[in-house]
Design a protein around this nucleic acid. Structure first.
Length: 510
RNA sequence: GUCUCGGUAGCUCAGCUGGUUAGAGCGGCGGAUUCAUAGCCCGCAGGUCGCGUGUUCAAGUCACGCUCGAGACACCA
């Protein structure tokens, strides 16, 4: 059984921004975690390539929509590789695989009698080519973008019978596991309680999209198209890609990770569409918060947008990962502060964990012939208890998507190990030969604790984890069972330790 | 306008169903130590718990009002 996790399919109107990096990093760590726990993971990401905005952006750049999409999609894909994202599928909504699945899906929904031709009417901005919300003063209201009066317009569109699924959706969102965090769930419940209305799924003024089979001048509107990428991606690499083979390969998704801005579509429209097609709704929708910058909203007009590419170059992907995963509680808004960023990386990764590794391996090498100490006796010690406790907490937190708390648990343990070391003072004990056995035990214990720290951090910072374990003389880490390696006492005695080198350099303020 | 969530030390936040001197991390200051990436460890830091009123023997923790911030109120990735 696959564990299916998705990022949103990012809109290729522009290059990846920090928000999409954030979402994707969250997904990546969860995907890695599940794999380490022995699950077969299908981590899906991709791009949404249709729509008026893209058509227009391409036109403005003097290229065809196809060329534009090819270019930006490639940028996205390469970008995720640069960030060391372990995705399994990258779906493009302009791909033939996707188009086929959309058509098959449409037929199923149609067969359920949930598609009908209706009239979309409302106040329309010619400049935006969009229907606007109806403000009270619509006739005199001016579109803020184009400064023009709105026009009343009727347009024939295909509609999806969402109203029919009022009850089904109410039942679905009743489950507290379905939408997280709670605050967002309340909003959705509130919204649904006011009654669901049918929504349009096609457009006639739009060329850049998937054609609706029965109506030659209609293309599918964004939600009917893009969300289906989650499904079509599953069988996209098969020889015989199809809706059915996608379903057979593991639908439904276990979790959609999304920004809070697109929650409603994922928590209401999407499940209803799936039920209509006789498919299962996703098991969970997890909406994370937005990122601000030094307390302010990021925006082009403010000129304070943080370019992820710069961050990557300046700090490296794992530092950014640590900051985003450890310091921001998943679901809440998070603030990106340069000063805090530097402090956190230096404190957590370099001082607390990095230095712990460095001091323990140094002692061991110095006193035990460049090796881990030989033991004459095994012992019970407080670090075993602490390790077991932190490991257990870590797993529980991660299982509940509390990645920040899980990360912090590693830090708690590392601090405890530093504490243990300071209390035992092996550097004092070693001065007297009769203490040698005790020193052996102490050093073994802190090395072993550090090994567990290095193992635990793996789904959060994969490279950092490997570096730690390598310094402890571990090899072939990829092929070892992760959970098994969380158990105490696996560090071999008298094993050669490489010369310690800092596994992470401290950052400086600008 | 209606509704939801939040406003706790310089910063980021914990504080469950009300109960001894309000907590953590980071920053700042001082100390101790040397195995280590000037690091780890120890101590200090005196914050009207947004404002006001009320309920109560007792409120950061409940009720009401106000204020500030974020968000939802259907076609905006």
């Amino acid at each position: 059984m696959n564990f299916i996790i998705t990022t949103p399919l990012y809109y290729v109107n522009d290059k990846p921004h920090l928000g999409s990096v954030y979402t994707t990093i969250i997904c990546d760590s969860i995907a890695r975690y599940k794999r380490l726990r022995g699950e077969k993971v299908l981590f899906i990401t991709g791009v949404d390539e249709h729509g008026l905005k893209i058509q227009r952006t391409a036109f403005n750049n003097g290229v065809s929509p196809k060329e534009h999409c090819d270019e930006i999609s490639e940028i996205f894909k390469k970008n995720w590789l640069k960030w060391n994202i372990s995705f399994n599928k990258f779906i493009r909504t302009t791909s033939p695989e996707h188009e086929k699945v959309v058509h098959e899906f449409y037929e199923k929904v149609k067969a359920s009698n949930d598609i009908y031709m209706g009239e979309q009417k409302g106040w329309y901005c010619v400049g935006c080519e969009e229907f606007k919300d109806n403000p009270d003063n619509s006739p005199s209201y001016k579109c803020p973008i184009h400064k023009k009066n709105l026009e009343w317009k009727n347009e024939n569109n295909l509609f999806f019978r969402l109203s029919k699924y009022q009850k089904a959706i109410e039942e679905l969102i009743q489950d507290p596991e379905f939408i997280e965090p709670k605050e967002r769930r309340n909003e959705i419940i509130n919204f649904v309680s006011k009654g669901l209305k049918d929504f349009s799924i096609s457009r006639t003024n739009l060329d850049w999209g998937i054609r609706v089979p029965d109506y030659i001048n209609h293309t599918f509107y964004v939600w009917f198209d893009a969300l289906l990428g989650y499904v079509s991606s599953i069988s996209s690499d098969d020889n015989k890609y199809s809706l059915d083979s996608s379903i057979e390969s593991g639908w439904p998704a276990n979790v959609h990770i999304i920004g809070k801005d697109i929650l409603r579509f994922h928590a209401i429209y999407w499940p209803a569409m799936l039920i209509s097609a006789g498919m299962k709704p996703p098991k969970k929708i997890l909406g994370h918060g937005f990122l601000t910058r030094e307390g302010q909203k990021m925006g082009k007009s403010l000129g304070n947008v943080l370019d992820p590419e710069n961050l990557l170059k300046k700090y490296g992907e794992e530092s950014v990962r640590w900051y985003l995963l450890k310091d921001i509680s998943l679901g809440s808004d998070g603030d990106f502060q340069d000063r805090r960023f530097v402090d956190i990386i230096n404190n957590d990764l370099a001082n607390t964990i990095g230095n712990l590794l460095n001091r323990t391996t140094s002692m061991s090498r110095k006193w035990f012939n460049n090796q881990t100490p030989p033991l004459s006796e095994k012992n019970n010690n407080e670090l075993i208890t602490l390790a077991n406790k932190s490991t257990k907490n870590f797993l529980t937190y991660f299982d509940n998507f509390k990645i920040d708390k899980a990360s912090n648990e590693i830090l708690v343990f590392a601090t405890n190990v530093n504490l243990y070391l300071n209390k035992k003072e092996p550097w004092s004990l070693i001065k007297d030969d009769k203490n040698i056995n005790e020193v052996k035990l102490i050093i073994y214990n802190v090395l072993e604790a550090t090994r567990i720290i290095g193992t635990l951090i793996r789904p959060i910072l994969p490279e950092f984890s490997i570096k730690i374990l390598y310094q402890l003389g571990e090899n072939n880490i990829e092929n070892k069972d992760w959970e098994e390696n969380l158990k105490w006492g696996l560090l071999p005695e008298s094993r050669s330790l490489p010369k310690p080198i800092p596994i992470i350099n401290k950052l400086d303020y600008e």
